[in-house]
Design a protein around this nucleic acid. Sequence first.
DNA 1: CGGCAAGCGGAACGATGACTTCCGTCACAC
DNA 2: GTGTGACGGAAGTCATCGTTCCGCTTGCCG
Lengths: 220, 220
Amino acid sequence: MAARRTTSPVADAPAGEGASPSASPALRSDAERNRRRILDAAREVYAEHGLGVGVDVVARAAGCGVGTLYRRFPTKQDLFRAIVEDRVDQLAAALGEAAAIGDPWEAFVRAAEEFAGAIARDRAFFEVVQHVEPGAAIAARERSLKALAPILRRAQKAGVVRADLVIEDVPALCAVAARLPAWRLEQQPELWRRYLGVVLDGVRAEAAHPLGHPPPKRAR
Amino acid sequence: MAARRTTSPVADAPAGEGASPSASPALRSDAERNRRRILDAAREVYAEHGLGVGVDVVARAAGCGVGTLYRRFPTKQDLFRAIVEDRVDQLAAALGEAAAIGDPWEAFVRAAEEFAGAIARDRAFFEVVQHVEPGAAIAARERSLKALAPILRRAQKAGVVRADLVIEDVPALCAVAARLPAWRLEQQPELWRRYLGVVLDGVRAEAAHPLGHPPPKRAR
DNA sequence: CGGCAAGCGGAACGATGACTTCCGTCACAC
DNA sequence: GTGTGACGGAAGTCATCGTTCCGCTTGCCG
């Protein structure tokens, strides 16, 4: 699991769209093209098969050799850190949109759907959220929870979501989807919606019966 | 993953308590003692860390060498097949008890608790149920579903459990609650009860709102 | 009590699969 | 046209894991 070498000092590369202000020696056109391809391929491959697959698979999917991949991302970690970072940004943005919905319950539902969908669609994302090992995961948690908090608070204040839930419960409940066996998601990729439906019915304030167990402690 | 050799012809050994009628050459006393220890250790180790751990860990936990382990269980598969089989039996028995409870709702809750508890406590069991690879898992599913069916049917007929659930949904929903990140279960081993509580509130007939997705197809 | 076969332990083996490096070849940029 | 950076993928390195093998021990039976 742990990379033999310590994680390399650099890694971030010219971020997404906005040109970074410094230290960007300008990539040659083919190099830039390959960087993109690698990122796309990695996203897809890791989403489908999890972080366990080898770099050669990613390279083949990107249509280039592993050497090329390694010149851009000196370490496997660097590669999927970039990807996960990206996913979390996407999710945070989606949660932001959800927060803008007028009806508190609708907003909450939408947020839950975004969360669960992200986990169901992207196995790598799930793995990072589930196992804590990489320190990056903590930041990711933090960031998504922060986006979620106001949505939950508003829904509870409006009396549509049961009052005994805490923020940390929400991702746990949304993870429903990801927990489905891979072979089920293969046959019915949207099956998670069914179970999220049940969970949401259990989350409604009107359905609430006392829970037998206290809320989770905050992550260490 | 796949064993190099085809699974060995023998494996089952004198089953649990009842002396098997034939082909049991009588183990020497120390051998029998070790067989027990290995089984116990394997149960514990696999339950805690999953099926991924090496045989040497199991052997060490059992206080013997890997050679001893291999004389009794010619293949790693033979070992955890024995264990999983055992767990399923336990679970089936517990579900049987649940079925005997008078109140349909109570019976259902009890069954769900048994199911979720088994999954939460035993990571190996979860892995086998989740990934289909070993053919044994299918039999295990089948057996536990069979024990669950009458309980669900009764609860639905009594109008306490929502009518749009099918049998296959129940394990899926229990797994939701149970498969929390390892580090959470470490701090609060019973945390799954909290989420099972939410799920159960969503399972009550009175809480039911239409689900957006059709039930899962039967396992292939 | 003595012999012997079955059992024992754990170092060693071989396969596997991962990450990373290296170097001859190629193609962009000027 | 030329040279410099990028490319590709075979080869190197390394850790891990299931399994085997063999010299020593120990329970069992006469």
